[in-house]
Write a protein that binds this DNA or RNA. Structure first.
Length: 217
DNA sequence: AAGTACCA
DNA sequence: TACT
């Protein structure tokens, strides 16, 4: 018997879970959108393929990413920033599909953030073994808008920490269709994703796809 | 430093 | 904690 946290957890019937004052997990919230999300994702990655970026420290990120929307998050040796064009192609990032915007706005409203107007959607692709170290989202122009994070595919353990990197983190399992929304007093909390466990998802195979919606500009 | 190595 |  070798039961870890995942083995003991199922996609929850609790539709909404409060993580902190202004942070919520909306269980299965994205499920009704999935039939439209996946074809839209296929078009995005055709126009702007997933790629591995390098951090300002010069190290390769294990997670592969692309973007849609007016602005896209990128990183290189010189730092993190949002750009209007894909550095790999020189073309604008693919437009944000209407279904992406609808989902992001509905999730934000459900968590109490009205009139969310994201102009950036970072698309992260996790394969088993990949991770995203604890970090803050602080490359955006204003911190009033929340962050909306959509999970698809195989499950992950999300870490939600405090305002200092060394603060204790809460581990939250995220399953296909779950949406996490944080803003307000929790907007700058550290967060990350632990190394992905092996898995297979009926629609997405051996990967987890995450959409992170932000107001960057 | 959105990353890793190393230590206690 | 240190650090390219």
């Amino acid at each position: 018997m070798n039961l870890d946290l995942f083995d003991t957890l199922e996609p929850s019937d609790n539709r909404q879970q409060q993580l902190a004052q202004d942070a919520f997990v909306l269980r299965g919230f994205a499920i009704p959108y999935v039939p439209e999300l996946l074809p839209a994702l296929a078009a995005i990655q055709q126009a702007a393929p997933f790629r591995h970026l390098v951090t300002p420290g010069g190290l390769r990120m294990s997670v592969a990413l692309t973007n849609c929307g007016r602005l896209g998050w990128t990183s290189d040796r010189h730092g993190y920033r949002y750009t209007a064009t894909d550095p790999d192609s020189g073309r604008p990032w693919p437009a944000m599909p209407a279904v992406f915007l609808r989902l992001a706005q509905a999730a934000a409203a459900q968590a109490g953030f009205d009139a969310f107007m994201p102009d950036a959607c970072l698309v992260n692709r996790y394969e088993p073994g990949t991770k995203l170290s604890l970090h803050q989202d602080k490359d955006e122009q204003d911190y009033n808008a929340p962050i909306v994070s959509v999970s698809l595919g195989i499950p992950a353990l999300f870490q939600f920490g405090g305002h200092a990197r060394s603060d204790k983190t809460e581990r939250v399992p995220l399953f296909h269709g779950d949406v996490v929304v944080w803003g307000g007093v929790d907007r700058l909390r550290y967060h990350g994703v632990l190394p992905l466990k092996e898995g297979q998802h009926p629609l997405l195979g051996r990967q987890r796809i995450n959409f992170t919606f932000r107001k960057a500009g």
